[in-house]
């Protein structure tokens, strides 16, 4: 059952992974707004529920909050010509304070207004804990797959194509009739909107929003994207389009959650396992990033060795 929970979390954080994938791989921009927009969605959803809105409406508010965060970062980057990394950091820091204000404190409980509790209610009073977990996982999977489908379709529209081209060859896009600034801003809005939506769903899932919920989400998103790419690296490069990328990001997120659950469950690193998660995350990302360099070094070493023997 632990792994069913991992699956559920994997799907919910999968939206975060898609968001990071869009900015990192499609737009080719290192966007550090992530932790800010994740927290923003998290806080806005909790506040909306606390104000008496329906959970679905709270998700919509979170999505819009993410759009707004992306809009600010995008505006800084394009119209005001701030370096992309700095633009993201600025928005993220600003959002930290805003999130505290939205929650009007370090944390805010959702209580009975949680989306998942509404779903459990369909099961009736007699439902066991395991039944609830399975229903939660199915709900998360449905939401995530639906959104992947929508985004995949979006990237096949004309606007979607323009956004992809902006990340692929900005020189060409600048010389064609596409407004680069606009496509970048729209791309960042969608990316951060999805990240905020992920934050909102996590607030519904754990039942409260707090300031620490968003810490580590950036590295998590990166890890998910990279693990997903490693998973799908067997596919020929020519077949790996945006749709495959979106699916691989979600798969990466799920696999990461399963690894984490396994490590903690098996106490692979002793009693400290749960505390080592972020270190593990950093190590996985670093290892995956150095694979190409390591492979080249190995090949050149092997060639030299064979040349010497000959």
């Amino acid at each position: 059952m632990l792994y069913v929970t991992a699956l559920q979390e994997g799907f919910l954080y999968g939206l975060l992974a898609i968001g990071v994938f869009i900015s990192l791989r499609v737009l080719n921009i290192p966007d550090l707004t992530t932790e800010g927009s994740f927290g923003f969605g998290n806080a806005v959803a909790a506040a909306a529920v606390a104000m008496g809105y329906h959970p679905n409406i709270s998700l919509l508010f979170a999505l819009l909050a993410g759009f707004a965060a992306g809009l600010v970062t995008g505006f800084l980057q394009t119209k005001l010509k701030v370096h992309p990394v700095l633009a993201g950091i600025i928005t993220m820091s600003g959002l930290y304070s805003i999130n505290l204000m939205v929650r009007s404190g370090p944390n805010l409980a959702i209580g009975e207004g949680s989306l998942f509790k509404l779903a459990y209610a369909f099961l009736g009073e007699a439902a066991s804990r395991d039944d609830k977990k399975i229903v939660g996982a199915i709900l998360a999977a449905t939401l995530c797959i639906l959104i992947v489908l929508l985004i995949a379709l979006f990237f096949k529209t004309h606007l979607g194509l323009c956004i992809r081209a902006t990340g692929d060859n900005p020189d060409m896009v600048r010389a064609s009739s596409i407004n680069v600034d606009r496509t970048k801003i729209i791309g960042l809005c969608i990316s951060n909107g999805l990240i905020a939506l992920s934050g909102a769903l996590i607030a519904h899932y754990v039942g409260y929003s707090d300031a620490s919920s968003s810490s580590g989400t950036l590295i998590y998103g990166l890890a998910a994207v990279i693990i997903g790419e490693a998973l799908f690296s067997l596919l020929p490069r020519s077949r790996r389009g945006v749709t495959i990328g979106l699916i691989s990001a979600v798969c990466g997120s799920i696999l990461y959650k399963i690894i984490v659950t396994f490590v903690v469950d098996a106490e692979l690193f002793g009693a400290n396992s749960a505390n080592l998660m972020k270190l593990l995350c950093a190590v996985i990302v670093a290892l995956t990033l150095i694979i190409p360099a390591a492979r080249d070094a190995l090949i050149s070493w092997k060639n030299r060795w064979e040349a010497r023997r000959a």
């Binding site: 004309h158 194509l161 323009c162 992809r164 081209a165 692929d168 060859n169 020189d171 060409m172 896009v173 010389a175 064609s176 009739s177 596409i178």
Partner: peptide, 20 residues
């Protein structure tokens, strides 16, 4: 290298120019 998007297919590149 300047006139086309390398990560997109031939038909996607043409669509980009055509649909606008």
């Amino acid at each position: 290298m300047k006139g086309t998007a390398p990560g997109m297919t031939i038909e996607e590149n043409l669509a980009l120019a055509y649909t606008r």
